[in-house]
Design a protein around this nucleic acid. Sequence first.
DNA 1: AGAACGGCCCTGGTTACCTCA
DNA 2: CGTGAGGTAACCAGGGCCGTT
Length: 234
Amino acid sequence: MSVHYSEFSHSAAAEAYNSTTPTSSSSSSPTRTCSIRKKKNSSSKKRFSDDQIKLLESIFETESKLDHTKKLQLASELGLQPRQVAIWFQNRRARSKSKHIQRSYNLLQENYDALASKFEALKKENHALLQELQKLRDLEDRNFCYKKVRDENLMNRECGKAEVKQSSSSMERSEKVLGVLSDDDRSLRTEYFGLEEEEPTILNSQEVWRNLKSTDELLPQSDDSAYQWGDFWS
DNA sequence: AGAACGGCCCTGGTTACCTCA
DNA sequence: CGTGAGGTAACCAGGGCCGTT
């Protein structure tokens, strides 16, 4: 145990403590009171001089642990006890480790902050993309309804003029429900579904009617009723 | 060979003292 | 001048390693 060092001068209290301390480790007590602990007198606690610290530091830079002969040599060079040199190196290693831990902690903290801000940015981007996706889904639904209405309309045209009237009003209704496609909607639809050639973007009922007029031969009924509807729309 | 023991040193934690704002 | 905070030399307990018996 460390109590065997004879090279360092102890106070009377320390001697008393050491003499009552068994060498076996079974005597360990978790709490060490000041009355038991060695009392240091004022002469036992002097800071090392700048020169001493300078030399100690320069050696510590190259080797953080000293062998026995090096320790003796250094102690003699510094005018210190070998025990003091050993303790200085122990404390110096502890300080070095503590600083290293602090630096590592700071580095980790910086990395964490950077990651956290990156995460927030990605979250925002993700939110924006989800919104865009929802918009596209809505557009897809509208397109589906449009096709459905158009097909219905075509079918109705084949069934006669009276049916056309109904179809037109149903078209009107569906337009009200769907609304007119904005320029953005059109461009999005073109971009994502490639529907420009396939689908006319008109949902205007009047144009639908004109189309119907131009395909009158498909209708089984006479022309005057078609004219009548044309007047109605204009 | 291997258990027991002593000496030395280490780490981690603590204490006592000093210095300085 | 008193005081609290921070720095540090010195210490302690517990444990590992190594040489000797």
